[in-house]
């Protein structure tokens, strides 16, 4: 436990500071504080999905720079399917399938063909941008509306926390569950052990009979499902429609979240909440009319935070050793 504390001390300390500041303000402005926290959670959700995708890929040794594209195209396909069928569930499933398919494509390029992983991811991004722009039709709506809000009975009545955590929409709940699922899979199951060994020393895994290709394909496809959920979250749960470039760099921010969270789903949650909080504060500032004449500076906040975090932490965190290197036996 103390070990965990030391490893994540920066994330934990930052969160503690935020919690303290929030509780302090909650004393006299409860409604607003709750709103900021709820907004932070909502803003963090797509980052959680994206970063969980990243962690599945990178723990198996594949850099996925294409999360942005996976989320964008999943948001698009999810929206189109939900709009055409009227079923949100069909839309969400279509989003997951899109992400999974793109994950399989990335696996094909980087595992089977042993191409450069960063370029393969860039191809995904550009393709997603081109396809979603070319096929997008203005004016489509969701016949069923966004995903519905679900409040979890008595839990929702808890002060502050209830409103923040227990009155949400389904994909947000799902993201909170998936954090623990991914953690459990990576650090407790046989598959997780295989994944981590493939991501560290693929030749060692191969010599004990583990198929590096199989592990990487599976993780990239599973990760793609997670990114697809992130995309579906954006178009079907957060906004309720599709806009060009609607991911707006979140797929890349998710990579920074993954690094800041030290390739660990629980760390990732903390880091995503931090970014979500930065975005929520940004919205709140705009809401209150601060810097009203210069909204661009507020617009920069998440990206600047991202750069600062990367510059401050990437050197100290240790990525899986085999990340980025194509593996071949001979």
């Amino acid at each position: 436990m103390s070990d965990l504390f030391i490893r994540f001390r920066w994330v934990i300390l930052t969160i503690l500071v935020f919690v303290f500041v929030t509780l302090f303000t909650a004393e006299f402005q409860q409604a607003q504080t709750t709103a900021v926290l709820a907004s932070a959670l909502r803003q963090s959700t797509p980052l959680v999905f994206g970063a969980l995708c990243g962690v599945m890929c990178e723990r198996s040794g594949v850099v996925n720079i294409g999360i942005e594209g996976q989320m964008l195209l999943s948001a698009f396909v999810g929206f189109m399917v939900a709009s055409a069928t009227g079923s949100l569930i069909a839309g969400i499933l279509a989003g997951m399938a899109t992400g999974a398919l793109m994950g399989a494509g990335l696996a094909g390029l980087s595992v089977t063909l042993q191409g450069d992983q960063i370029i393969a991811g860039t191809v995904l991004n550009i393709a997603a941008f081109g396809i979603s722009s070319y096929f997008f039709q203005q004016g489509l709506t969701l016949p069923s509306g966004k995903t519905p809000q679900v409040s979890l009975g008595p839990l929702a009545d808890l002060p502050v926390i209830g409103r923040v955590f227990f009155i949400n929409r389904p994909l947000t709940y799902l993201s909170l569950i998936l954090i623990w699922v991914v953690w459990f899979v990576l650090f407790r199951t046989r598959w997780g052990l295989w994944t981590r060994s493939v991501g560290e020393v693929p030749s060692a895994a191969e010599t004990v009979g583990i198929s590096v290709a199989r592990v990487r394909y599976t993780n990239l496809i599973a990760g793609g499902c997670l990114a697809g959920l992130g995309g579906a979250y954006l178009s079907l749960e957060a906004v309720g429609s599709f806009e060009r470039m609607m991911t707006n760099g979140r797929g890349f921010v998710a990579l920074a979240v993954m690094i800041f969270g030290r390739w660990n789903p629980i760390g990732i949650w903390g880091a995503a909440l931090l970014f979500g909080y930065a975005s929520a504060v940004q919205t709140q500032l705009q809401f209150r009319g601060w810097l009203a004449d210069d909204p661009q500076f507020i617009g920069m906040i998440p990206y600047v935070v991202c750069i600062v975090v990367l510059a401050g932490f990437v050197g100290r965190a240790r990525p899986p050793a085999a990340v980025g290197q194509p593996y071949s036996r001979e």
């Binding site: 920069m300 990206y303 991202c306 750069i307």
Partner: peptide, 20 residues
Amino acid sequence: TRGAHEVITTIMLNFVALNL
């Protein structure tokens, strides 16, 4: 100096540049 990977920083700097 910090080991921050240029792929992410340059993308983030794109967004910052557009705002700036």
